[in-house]
Write a protein that binds this DNA or RNA. Sequence first.
DNA 1: GATGAATGAGATTTCATTCAT
DNA 2: TATGAATGAAATCTCATTCAT
Lengths: 207, 207, 207, 207
Amino acid sequence: MLAATALPAPPQDRKNRILDAAERCFARHGFHKSTMQDVAAECAMSPGNLYRYFSSKDDLVAGLAERDRERFMCDITVITAATDPRSAFEALGRLHLVETPVEKAVLMMELWAESARNPRIGAICRAMDHEVHGIMTAFVAQWRRLEGMSSPTPPDQVASLMMILGDGLFRQRASAPDFNAEAAFRLIYPIVLNAIGVPQSSPPEVP
Amino acid sequence: MLAATALPAPPQDRKNRILDAAERCFARHGFHKSTMQDVAAECAMSPGNLYRYFSSKDDLVAGLAERDRERFMCDITVITAATDPRSAFEALGRLHLVETPVEKAVLMMELWAESARNPRIGAICRAMDHEVHGIMTAFVAQWRRLEGMSSPTPPDQVASLMMILGDGLFRQRASAPDFNAEAAFRLIYPIVLNAIGVPQSSPPEVP
Amino acid sequence: MLAATALPAPPQDRKNRILDAAERCFARHGFHKSTMQDVAAECAMSPGNLYRYFSSKDDLVAGLAERDRERFMCDITVITAATDPRSAFEALGRLHLVETPVEKAVLMMELWAESARNPRIGAICRAMDHEVHGIMTAFVAQWRRLEGMSSPTPPDQVASLMMILGDGLFRQRASAPDFNAEAAFRLIYPIVLNAIGVPQSSPPEVP
Amino acid sequence: MLAATALPAPPQDRKNRILDAAERCFARHGFHKSTMQDVAAECAMSPGNLYRYFSSKDDLVAGLAERDRERFMCDITVITAATDPRSAFEALGRLHLVETPVEKAVLMMELWAESARNPRIGAICRAMDHEVHGIMTAFVAQWRRLEGMSSPTPPDQVASLMMILGDGLFRQRASAPDFNAEAAFRLIYPIVLNAIGVPQSSPPEVP
DNA sequence: GATGAATGAGATTTCATTCAT
DNA sequence: TATGAATGAAATCTCATTCAT
């Protein structure tokens, strides 16, 4: 904000600019077919300069995975504080599963594949899974307590179910360009609500 | 049948030997970190010889994807002819989701990522998805007719649900080395049965 | 001719069949872009069998050069015994420079390039040049003696001139697909006759 | 002009340094037996760096052919503006046919062979032939007009004759290491002068 | 004699990374 | 800080040649 700090350009901004560029490149051509030159060109920097912010190509991918994780955790955490769990939950589901651009889904396949080889990516993915699982477990338990609901499926299993459904939906989106995410969401959403124990006024009608 | 005629070595056997080796390599280090030298060493052949059977590295991956597709289609097709749909369905689910070695799941992530870049892999994956969806839709419809069951979810949506759950479970297995596939299967199986319309004697008990 | 010798197929025939195939391949794609597999396929033999007749690819090219040399020497030698030098000379010129298919010219460029690297090809080419030069020198001297002609250019220089003109014409044919060899021949032929000392009834008319 | 600005190294200089090295390599071992490593070593660069200036090995050869064409066109064009056609013509002939190092002739065989396979080289060679033919035709016509000479051979045919003789002489030089270019030049030069229509004081004496 | 599957050295090309400026 | 030319290791793929049958 101050003139004095405007010139040297905050390093975090640079990092983000690079990560944005990398994200675009990787979504377009995949991680392995994108070169550091490509990324440099995409963010209008010199190749050498990337190495001032990320120590290697792997570090760049890890940085991307890490930023995604942070952002997603940010999104997800808000529901724990929501006064209306149901609408907050649905909003989060829609945001994550329907509104997210398909490129993110494609990128996620890349990350899932990488996570089996690259220990750092693996650690980030597992950490995210672990956190998400914990948050959703707590969220389900809290929601049930709040509204006096019950269900034969314990909260941690509901959380597992959510993650399986979410990941499956992501994969379908990544795979089929014409996949109807909205329809799929309407298909799985009631199943999750049911597992949580939310009483559903009417069975989903399919005309 | 005679030893004398066995010598020229059937080409399909060679192809399969190479594909087996490639599968092991790719499962270990991923497609992009495995070299043709690695694959050659793994099947005790010379690098040049691989090119007699597969015209390029990409062709090798496509061959692997294609073989997987064929095998899976083989497995899945039997259920359409099953006299006892329920046990055949459960057997197929267990076979595919629980008994399949984790390496296959890891390999599948690789393939999913590839399918967004490599048109041939993409085509194979989409073809498989399409076939599986068709078979499962028909299977659900047939089962319902056979046993006079009904459900608000139309067969094609049930098929979509199965695929979402199956893919999600695969991804969880690939990601977490200690993921309990059996428990996850017990979690999602009743949901699918319910969507199909199979009457369930008792709610799934979780001890 | 005898039934007994017909079966094992005379080796020289085999060699020639291979050389014919090689000639077609080399004319089409050049020496360096033709593989031994290509040549084998072209003469419907197995690659390994080529090595029973030629010890290496280089040996095959040398064989081709050698056969060409022999054939050309055969053609050229007849003029020394011709009763009518003039018509024999013109016939030879037309045969070599106009009637020879363009592919031969293209092949010759290949050989000229090779002869600078491959000592054996070099030796064959130089031997041929030497022989041709000797024969033409003798032929010019003999012709002059026979018809009592004279010219300021000594026979060996006339021979040099013939070779320069012949090679130059070959190169033009090889280079330009629509090169008019007949017109070029009519352009250079009187020049050679003149150098030999043949009295020319009328200057070449160009309508 | 300042030392400080000289550092980024002008790309054209780099290209020329590479072309010089390639020329040496190709003259020594031929195009097909020279590797990019060889060329890189010859110009004291890394192999990868060559690809910053030439996109492929073929591109490098094409670059060489193109540079040769430009240089030769430069040499040849000056005669059209010469005040004394005769001495300019002789000087050009000597420069091109006698003073040019033999390596160039050897290289030219390589290029002639290449031009039949490599469309780009073919195009460059044909373009050069076309230009040379046009310039020499115009030159002969202009010379005749200037000095009121005449000859039964039309200018374009004289140009063809020059090219045939020139190419033939090149091939002889390339083939025989001890070929006497000077003697050959003295042999063909009067023939060309005669075809142009230049009155020759005395027939060439051969002692 | 003949086959053709197999070999493996070697060539072209790419690209993550460095470093002089 | 930033640049971008340069590096050089490594990967894919080719093909002359061999050899068991």
